[in-house]
Amino acid sequence: MGTAGSSGSALQRLLKRRIGPWSGRVWGLVMNLAANAVTLWGVSSLLRTGGGWAWIVIGGMATVACMAVLAVPDRTGDPAE
């Protein structure tokens, strides 16, 4: 949480910024879904063929990163914060 707070303003601006049709927060949710799919693809490969650890690690790390970024709240612009 300390990390989120120290780099908060840059992340908060990114999450609020409109990129094409959606805000950064929505794109983050889409990326999280893609990362979840990669992880589960790895799990499915592991169950079927015994391989797929690389997908699990890449997808898992991307999921953690997406959640860590998306959890940053918008604290900008309110008085007495």
Partner: peptide, 19 residues
């Protein structure tokens, strides 16, 4: 609106499970 990192994280965990 939410100002809590932990609250958002808890919701994102549930969203990820729904994903």
């Amino acid at each position: 609106r939410s100002k809590s990192y932990l609250w958002n994280l808890g919701i994102l965990l549930q969203v990820t499970l729904l994903n």
